[in-house]
């Protein structure tokens, strides 16, 4: 049962999922990509997402929850339209990662895992994102921003507010 009658996903994503479960030796391998792609579209892993993905793969909803709660990128609450993820791990920390995080908090008026009232931005302090040699770094909706300074952050926020940000989903 790779197809679902009343899918909550867009036709494109539903079609992608229909295909995704067929490419692996075991269909359950599609679980983590599906959760991530569903989150990209829906904004978070809602109960409806859990339910439909369980159905698509043919596992229990409990299994889906067991897995989704393990992975730190998956969230069960909505984030902002632009999810700002600031790395503060060692390489970034040495080059001002915490200053960048503090600047973001101040600028957006929200804390770790907070969402701005207008829903445009959310903020997260994250572990190493693999941009150590270009630190300090952050990701906004998967897009990397390197060698940050508070000034560059301001420019970036404005860019996203203006709808100029790149979305690499």
């Amino acid at each position: 049962m790779s197809t679902v009658a009343n899918t909550i996903f867009s036709p494109e994503l539903a079609a992608r999922f229909d295909h995704l479960v067929t490419i692996y030796p075991l269909r359950r391998s599609a679980l983590i990509p599906m959760l991530l792609y569903a989150q990209d579209e829906v904004g978070y892993i809602s109960e409806a997402v859990v339910s439909e993905i369980a159905q698509r793969i043919g596992i229990l909803e409990l299994d889906v929850r067991n897995v989704l709660s393990y992975y730190s990128m998956l969230r069960t609450k909505p984030a902002g339209k632009y999810n700002v993820q600031v790395c503060t791990n060692i390489s970034c920390m040495l080059r001002g990662g915490y200053e960048i995080l503090d600047h973001c908090k101040h600028k957006l008026g929200i804390g770790h895992k907070g969402v701005t009232p207008d829903g445009v931005f959310s903020l997260e302090e994250v572990e190493c994102i693999g941009a150590c040699c270009w630190a300090p770094a952050m990701q906004v909706n998967y897009d990397f921003h390197d060698d940050l300074t508070p000034g560059k952050v301001d420019v970036l926020f404005q860019m996203y507010r203006d709808g100029q940000g790149k979305d690499v989903k």
Binding site: L26, I32, P33, C128
Partner: peptide
């Protein structure tokens, strides 16, 4: 295949588990 945020999955057998969903 994409992961979804877990350092531990860098361990080879954990990565296999992750790849198996």
């Amino acid at each position: 295949q994409t992961g979804a945020g877990a350092y531990e999955v860098g361990e080879e057998s954990a990565l296999m588990e992750s790849l198996e969903g």
